[in-house]
Design a binder for these strands. Structure first.
Length: 157
DNA sequence: GCCAACGTTGGC
DNA sequence: GCCAACGTTGGC
């Protein structure tokens, strides 16, 4: 059973790929996703062992900066019922959680980042969601072909 | 910092 | 259920 591939966005000023790598056990729980499509991907389709293009958004050079791995199935995002959290949602409770998250773990460094601009200039990647205009989804499915192409680009200087 | 493109909210 | 208003995302 082949695993799936994903792209997950993070603002490096908030949580970067290096932050992931320097976390205890090189992993973290991906809390704070408050978009239904992104939630559904995590809750319904992500499996342990799936591979993730870790993407830096809202920064000087947006792009894919490393490879991570999904290390748990989805489970309720406890920050959603923590009234002190900035991700608090009063409609989510422990008995009826509305939001979910997975854990991801550092998997592999790239030799170099693959910028959004470079992906846009690569014909093979033309249909990737992340290069589409106005695409804001923070958790996106990626085809095996696109995943491997981006990884290969990042491994060749 | 600007602003276009989205997603969500809420009045009706 | 429509849709205007609002808030957010994220490239530039």
């Amino acid at each position: 059973m082949a695993g799936k591939y994903w792209l997950m966005k993070s603002e490096p000023g908030v949580f970067s790929f290096d932050d992931l790598k320097n976390s205890p056990n090189k992993g973290t729980h991906w809390d704070g996703v408050r978009n239904y499509r992104a939630r559904n991907f995590m809750r319904d389709e992500m499996k342990k062992g799936d591979l993730v293009l870790f993407y830096h958004s809202n920064c000087e050079v947006p792009g894919v900066v490393g490879i991570a791995e999904v290390s748990t199935e989805a489970y309720p995002d406890h920050t959603s019922w923590d009234s002190k959290s900035k991700y608090f949602d009063p409609k989510s409770t422990p008995d009826n959680p509305r939001w979910f998250m997975v854990d991801i773990t550092w998997k592999e460094d790239l030799q170099r980042p693959v910028s959004l601009q470079e992906m846009k200039e690569t014909p093979v990647l033309r249909d990737m969601l992340v290069v589409q205009r106005g695409q804001r989804l923070s958790v996106q499915p990626v085809s095996k072909e696109h995943f491997e192409k981006v990884r290969k680009m990042g491994m060749n200087r």
